[in-house]
Write a protein that binds this DNA or RNA. Structure first.
Length: 259
DNA sequence: ATGCCTGTCTGGGACAGA
């Protein structure tokens, strides 16, 4: 069972990259973020032709999350987080498939900080933690996958160098504390667990030759509850996708779990 | 020191992203 997450930075522009990556790597389940398209313009037919069912929560121009599955048992469980009826951003969708509970997460970026966007990020983080606390105890395997917009530490496993990002919302103590508090529920940061201390990034800015210099950040995470962690076999990042023509600024990250 | 690129919606300049 291979479960991947990919911030596509626009599914319309990225569709060729996504379809070829699906064919090459054959994940069973995929969480997508930053669709940047409305519900009625999501390319469900093209993905179906590629062999994947989908549930999605779109938004015109910004945000947007989806879950793809190669199985026809895919069922949407919820869209959006509870706790704020005024939240208009499409950043969370949850589904069941293959006996798993899967959440696709696009946590707010939070820049500039301090300010209302940073406040929104922290509030959203809190709502996420409150919602998934019950999921951790679920007997089914649960995977929370997505772009968390958190660089967990200043260590080289998480960021090439913190110097250029010192004032960035991704590195702030409040952001890191929120992420630690989430992990404290018991979730396993799968890529960190299997690649501790190694630079294994998921995002490289488009400019300043950041990818060519491997000046990246690890901000896309796959968190596992106990039932999923017990089956963890391997994890990685498909960084070759970032090297292609017209790439997203993120690369897909994935976990493989024993059947 | 800085969105330096990129995508989207628009209607070509603005905004968001990290």
């Amino acid at each position: 069972m291979k479960i991947a997450t990919f911030n596509v930075n626009g599914i319309t522009a990225r569709l060729p990259r996504v379809v070829e990556w699906l064919a090459e790597t054959g994940p069973d389940v995929v969480c997508l973020q930053e669709l940047k398209t409305a519900d009625d313009t999501f390319p469900a037919l093209a993905l179906q032709a590629a062999g994947y069912r989908a549930v999605w929560h779109g938004q015109k121009g910004f945000n947007g999350v989806a879950i793809l599955s190669c199985s026809d048992d895919l069922v949407e469980v919820r869209r959006g987080l509870p706790g704020d009826p005024d939240d208009t951003h499409s950043r969370y969708i949850e589904a069941t498939t293959h006996g798993f509970v899967i959440a696709s997460i696009y946590l707010p970026n939070g820049n500039p900080q301090p300010g209302p966007k940073f406040d929104y990020k922290l509030a959203w983080f809190q709502r996420l933690a409150e919602h998934v606390a019950a999921l951790f105890a679920d007997a089914r395997p649960v995977v929370l996958a997505g772009d968390y917009n958190v660089v967990a530490t200043d260590e080289v496993g998480d960021i090439y160098s913190p110097r250029s990002y010192l004032k960035d919302a991704l590195l702030q103590p409040e952001t890191r504390s929120a992420y630690r508090n989430l992990l404290a529920q018991g979730w396993l940061d799968s890529i960190h667990h299997l690649h501790t201390g190694k630079p294994i990034y998921t995002y490289w800015d488009y400019f300043r030759n950041r990818f060519e210099r491997d000046a990246g950040l690890r901000i896309d995470h796959l968190l596992l509850n106990g039932a999923a962690a017990a089956r963890l076999e391997s994890a990685g990042v498909d960084r070759f996708v970032r090297a292609r023509e017209k790439p997203s600024d993120h690369a897909p990250a994935w976990v493989a779990l024993r059947d």
